[in-house]
Design a protein around this nucleic acid. Structure first.
Lengths: 193, 193
DNA sequence: ATTGCATGTCAACAAGTGTTGGCCTACGGT
DNA sequence: ACCGTAGGCCAACACTTGTTGACATGCAAT
């Protein structure tokens, strides 16, 4: 261990690492996995392409690091059951309005199998766990989580990727008021109602 | 006009054209726009890559031809107003269950600006027109269409692209019974209810 | 039979990709 | 002051991509 160690174990290259990661997220979000080139990312970060390889091993490794994403779902057990839908839409909107990581993941998931698997994992594990915290019967948990994912990802897809005018122009609170009842029913309702 | 004309104006190359188009749809659906190479498409169609260029001009031209898509929406005016949601989900599911054109368009729209614009056009024009056929106030038509698109595209995205297990495993009729009420409210309801 | 054009094949180009290894530079511990 | 090493840059490789042009082949009308 003759490595250089700063005040708190920070390496001198940490700034570079962060710059690469930030540029990577931007490019992946804007262009998708295949069109975002390592050269372009390196140029944005103002370093040499070979540094990307040194620090992240490969393009896939870089993406894996850049697409680290946590839904940061709130504790649904402490939410009034009648307001679950509302809380959830609002959370999702504010969560990724301004964080381009999800857009990067969303774009990449369409063409890159690894990205798709990661997205599957996020929405299967994190969302299913959150849905399981309140007392619906366990047999329905996965289905409820899947339905919620379908509406929430559809919202993201139409608003941030395809940019459908009515979905782009709508104010967040407008979307909340329309979509909240949907999630509410997916979470606590039955199919027919 | 010294061109060769068959029994009904069919050229000898029409079979080749069709083979290219079929292979292109498959590849675009499976791999997305950038990963689907002209060489691979040509190999599938068992012809030379240069033929693709001759008949479709460029890769973009080929995609434009392969991604020609019509939602074939039914006449919503002749549907009992209370069953609009149900009819619409069922139609969408059966429309693209087995036709990979929409999957190709969906995958490509994530990374290719032209594909995104086409998807925008399809869902703006065709869906908005259909929603406008029954008598809701015109000011809300675009918003209703956008919301329907968000849920319907979210369904497609989670079922065919990300392949979320609960959405893949569900039988079509199960999905209809859950999602129909959502569309019904987007089409005829109010935000709060 | 011969001409003309549609159809198809082959080989190559120019550009761009991820990735690699060698080399220079300068900081930090001794 | 010295020296090892981490940080960074340059040039190049091997490969794939879309695209192009020259050349062969065969059908159909004259």
């Amino acid at each position: 261990m003759t490595a250089t160690a700063g005040p708190a174990g920070t390496r001198r290259s940490d700034a570079t690492r962060a710059a690469i990661l930030r540029a990577a997220r931007e490019r992946f979000a804007a262009d998708g996995y295949e069109r975002a080139t390592i050269r372009a990312i390196a140029a944005d970060a103002q370093i040499d392409p070979s540094m990307v390889m040194r620090y992240y091993g490969s393009k896939e490794g870089l993406f894996a690091a850049a697409a680290e994403f946590d839904l940061r779902l709130p504790d649904l057990a402490s939410v009034p059951p009648a307001r679950l839908g509302e809380v959830l839409v609002r959370h999702f909107l504010s969560r990724w309005e301004g964080d381009e990581t999800l857009v990067a993941l969303l774009r990449a998931a369409s063409t890159n199998p690894g990205a798709a698997e990661r997205m599957r994992g996020i929405f299967t594990d994190q969302l299913t766990a959150a849905v399981a915290t309140f007392g619906t019967d366990p047999a329905m948990t996965a289905r409820r989580a899947g339905l919620v994912a379908s509406q929430v990802l559809g919202l993201a897809f139409t608003r941030y990727i395809v940019r459908l005018p009515p979905m782009v122009d709508a104010a967040p609170e407008e979307l909340v008021s329309w979509i909240a009842p949907t999630l509410q029913r997916y979470l606590t309702g039955t199919a027919s109602s």
